[in-house]
Write a protein that binds this DNA or RNA. Structure first.
Length: 284
DNA sequence: CGTTGAACCTGTTTGC
DNA sequence: TGCAAACAGGTTCAAC
């Protein structure tokens, strides 16, 4: 569910509601998606949430603790990834917790921060210092920050299918299946095109399309396909502006040809067979 | 380097 | 109607 725009929307909501709050306690349901639940149980209670950042599809809850400072330990951060079905938001304790609520953190303002995730493809880890740096370093550039020239240069060096590359978090950090398909539609590029064979103009168009799509999606509060909600429980609205994703058989908004769905990099890929021409060579 | 398929897990939708 | 298969916003790993 959550790609960069959804995580960004959630981060903005959480900044208003939980930054500055102190975590009183951490309670767990299932913990098989957590790197080291015992470390979280030990290290998080008593900490103040000093800041919340988004890194790709990750949340970074920066923690401040008097104990760590006194011992000269580097500040820790709680890293959270929502996987396919994760959700993170504050609630009143009297509000019944839905099924699959696996982490509950009561805060000093009477609310509790809950992590809910039916499939448990998400991830949570308490990291600091070198381990935190390493985790961030293994991922690629932020798609809204990378410069056009660098984007084009890196694309030109790769023989992978462009869709596979957009989904590769070491190439760009934060794009998932929805925004890959939407960006390729806007740039009029077939998902199976080999990255290095794109013309400079096409590469620039893709860079521009990614920026445009992500920015518009953030303004719309993300895409709600079935269950995504922001920190205040409201759905996003970008799904009504999808041009390719989940539109198999529906008319292309540019040329009315029927949107097709094929498998690329093991993922459903939606594109317009007329606007996004098949690679000359073969395939698709 | 790159691709494919499976695995992780639960829920919902689709097809016969 | 009912059950099984297919599919889902993600990531990782083995095998080729």
């Amino acid at each position: 569910m959550p790609e960069l725009p959804e995580v960004e929307t959630l981060v903005r909501g959480l900044r208003r509601s939980v930054v500055g709050r102190r975590v009183l306690e951490v309670r767990f349901g299932k913990t098989d998606f957590i790197d080291d639940a015992a470390a979280i149980e030990r290290g998080v209670p008593g900490c103040r949430i000093a800041a919340i950042e988004r890194v790709g599809k990750f949340f970074l809850l920066r923690l401040e603790s008097a104990a760590a400072e006194a011992n000269g330990r580097p500040p820790a951060a709680l890293l959270v990834h929502l996987g396919m079905t994760g959700h993170l938001s504050p609630h009143r304790p009297e509000e019944p917790a839905p099924r699959h609520t696996h982490v509950v953190m009561p805060l000093d303002d009477g609310h509790e921060l809950r992590y809910t995730d039916p499939r448990r493809f998400g991830r949570m880890a308490l990291l600091s210092g070198a381990a935190l740096q390493a985790e961030i370093a293994r991922h690629g550039a932020e798609p809204l920050k990378i410069h056009e020239n660098e984007f084009c240069t890196r694309l030109a060096a790769r023989r992978a299918r462009v869709k596979a590359l957009l989904l590769d978090q070491r190439f760009l950090h934060g794009i998932g299946n929805i925004y890959a398909d939407e960006s390729l539609w806007h740039a009029r590029i077939h998902p199976m095109r080999i990255a290095a064979t794109l013309t400079r103009g096409q590469a620039r168009a893709l860079h521009r399309a990614i920026r445009k799509v992500l920015a518009a999606a953030i303004r719309a509060g993300g895409s709600s396909i079935s269950d995504y909600r922001d920190a205040d429980g409201r759905p996003g609205f970008f799904q009504i502006r999808h041009r390719a994703y989940d539109r198999e058989g529906k008319p292309c908004h540019r040329c009315r040809a029927r949107i097709r769905r094929i498998l690329v990099a093991g993922r459903s890929s939606h594109f317009c067979p007329r606007c996004q021409r098949v690679p000359r060579s073969k395939q698709a």
